[in-house]
Design a protein around this nucleic acid. Sequence first.
RNA 1: GGCCCGUUGGUCAAUCGGUUAAGACGCCUCCCUUUCACGGAGGAAUGAGGGGUUCGAUUCCCCUACGGGCUACCA
Length: 519
Amino acid sequence: MDYLCHMLQRKTRVRFAPSPTGGLHLGGVRTALFNYLFAKRHQGEFILRIEDTDQSRFVPGAEQYILDSLRWCGLEPDESPEQGGPFGPYRQSERKALYRQQAERLVASGHAYYAFDTPEEIEAMREHWRTEEDPSPQYGQRLRMHMRNSLTLPSEEVQALLQSGHPCVIRLRMPADEVVGFEDMVRGHVEFQTAQIDDKVLLKADGMPTYHLAVVVDDYHMHITHAFRGEEWLPSAPVHLLLWKYLGWAEQMPQWAHLPLILKPDGHGKLSKRDGERLGFPVFAMDWRDPASGEVTRGFREMGFLPEAFVNMLALLGWNDGSGQEIFSLGELVATFSLDRVHKGGARFDFEKAKWYNQEWIRRTANQQLLPLADSVFRDHGIDVDPARLAEAIPLVKDRCILLTDFIPQAAFLFRAPLAWDKPSIAAKWNPQRQRFFLDWTEELAAGHGEWTATTLEQSFQAAATAAGIKAGELQLPLRIMLVGGKYGPPVFTIAALIGQRETYARIRRALQELDAGT
RNA sequence: GGCCCGUUGGUCAAUCGGUUAAGACGCCUCCCUUUCACGGAGGAAUGAGGGGUUCGAUUCCCCUACGGGCUACCA
């Protein structure tokens, strides 16, 4: 009972534990997001732990990238390698001693053993025992007595090998015939037969722990209460459960939740970086530059996504609140998120839907807030914009933008003359009379056009058209193309009003020349 | 091959035994607009198959099929 009370009062602590091997994948961000939402929903803590136990896969810069990506998404950890915390270090490579100590403890209690087999010997074993029914024989209860380990070798020899510095790993000794089950927070009861599971390596020859040992040792020491990870980890859950038990920490074991996978939009399997390249959409949160190859993989951020949209989209991939609401701010997600509404099946990633979320978020984001973002998009494209004019432009074009980068095609013409014109569309409505009209009207503009507003301009245009005996509507499209370059954008006279008298005149005259040259 | 998880329209998905099986994306039609969008109205499109349980199954159980994951001294 005391214990129960203690458990109930335990502060919620979850961790996101990526390994720094490259860019942060969509699925990784979603796992981080679900962790974050759950933690905040329960007034708990969200911890970032770097799982860098595989030295061969370490990629410089990846850790910083992860930190930056989480920050961009608004998922700030409460404890991390960067800011530290009461249960650090938060990088597994810096906690090395901890793992050996626990692994030795398992050897002492008989739940683990030393194994001296070389990779070649293990390969030979697989070769030897391979059959059609068992294409990949496991180092486990059936075969471990045929291998070189502290279970088969005399203890003097084990001691000698240990002292000689012979490469040695520590393996978990899987019990012969037990059923290991648990309640998964998204899947319900799940169980496994230990007979099917091999003797997992716990401590590698280089002294580093494998994931299996590291997760449980760290989750224990960091007082993690709930552990969420992708479904690909489900088959190794029994290994972890047993470890919690053998280490004597079963009472403190976190509750597990295995999240559904994010699948390829087409074909089969889980979404990978390659799919994005193949299908033309980002998979990483932000641009990732591989330090070895120099190759850059596009990210959602650089492609023009708002972090709010990215996060919103990710949250709804595998979760919904049942109400039909689809647009959620991070705060709203925190308020409504619950694990029991997480879908069990994997979800195909749909870039079209992702874009829709972004479009919605651009529309909902305050113009004031959009200003610096649009400004930097223009800057990145080498277009100098007047902030005051940009501020006027944003409400005019935001509804037409799906990505932030759409501000370029949708508004660049407000800052510089078009580089090309949709001439065929003018040609369809062109004749000498109309050309004459534009010559005359620009003349009139140059002569001085009182108040320069969309309304007065439209009036003068109308009047001139009527005087020339042409329907104004027939002239509007040509005018638009002269000013904008194509058939898009806000109302023409609003554009003319914004770019000013001089520029309007110049663009029409320039386009007229261009048209002459073209005919 | 073995083990585990999953399966409602093209996609994301609601439904927690009784519904005309929501909603959204995308697609199509129309309206608004002499641009493009936005917006509005409408449309096509879903319970993998077979057994049970039940007065009644999309919903519960079993089998099959299909999909996915794992099967490393990677995470």
